[in-house]
Write a protein that binds this DNA or RNA. Structure first.
Lengths: 111, 111
DNA sequence: TTAACAGGTAAGAATATGCTTACCTATTAT
DNA sequence: ATAATAGGTAAGCATATTCTTACCTGTTAA
């Protein structure tokens, strides 16, 4: 399926954790794999998905493969979801209490 | 699998489009389904996933089922991804040019 | 009351996903 | 040179996902 889709890539919890680990900086596969209960090949496969989504890059140094986060690929997700920020921010304002009772999204559709 | 996982729910492009449609306000299934090439049962099934993830609620009015976005469920995604915002914001600042050449994430790991 | 409409569920098929074991290459250490 | 290390790929399996057709319920219109 959509091998390049960032949303798909981060839809899997293990891959999300890998991204989180990489948020602390570049790391070799060995270190990335350590916190997980699954086998290393499984990690390699997840890293491949992240690679194909453009979310990580690899640098070979000797026999180690250092993965690095390409955070800018997350921007697509950020932009998409930030668009909905207004819904929960609105609730913090004047009519917040009312909307709390009524729901989170506007009721009328304008087309 | 994780039927409740918001990340999983929005990992599918059709469901993301449904969320987008609902961003314009509450709508019955008929209207939601119209832009898609797939059958209405398929839409019902996607809506079910969104419901189970807490991303939408339904209100029955006569024979129509009005779906409404529960945008606050997207906050989990927003919070997760916003954490990485610094990576591309940093690039706009002083050392941005340098990082542009070197990559997007910090190189060293501190553990 | 009967037909049409809105929409859900069920079953089944095709494909995707996530994992394992087995195996391969390249690098470093002995 | 040989063994150990790092990590990737391949094949295969079990389960999940996505879609379809068939069918069912409840509501409105004729």
């Amino acid at each position: 399926m959509a091998r390049r889709d960032v949303f798909h890539a981060i839809g899997e919890p293990t891959r999300r954790r890998l991204v989180d680990l990489l948020g602390h900086g570049e790391q070799p596969v060995n270190r990335l794999a350590r916190p997980f209960a699954i086998t290393r090949p499984a990690i390699s496969q997840h890293l491949r998905v992240l690679r194909e989504a453009g979310l990580v890059t690899v640098r070979r140094e000797g026999r180690e493969h250092y993965y690095r986060l390409r955070a800018k690929r997350l921007r697509e997700v950020y932009d998409w979801v930030a668009h909905y920020e207004r819904f929960w921010h609105k609730r913090l304002r004047a009519l917040g209490k009312y909307l709390d009772r009524e729901g989170d999204a506007p009721r009328e559709n304008s087309s």
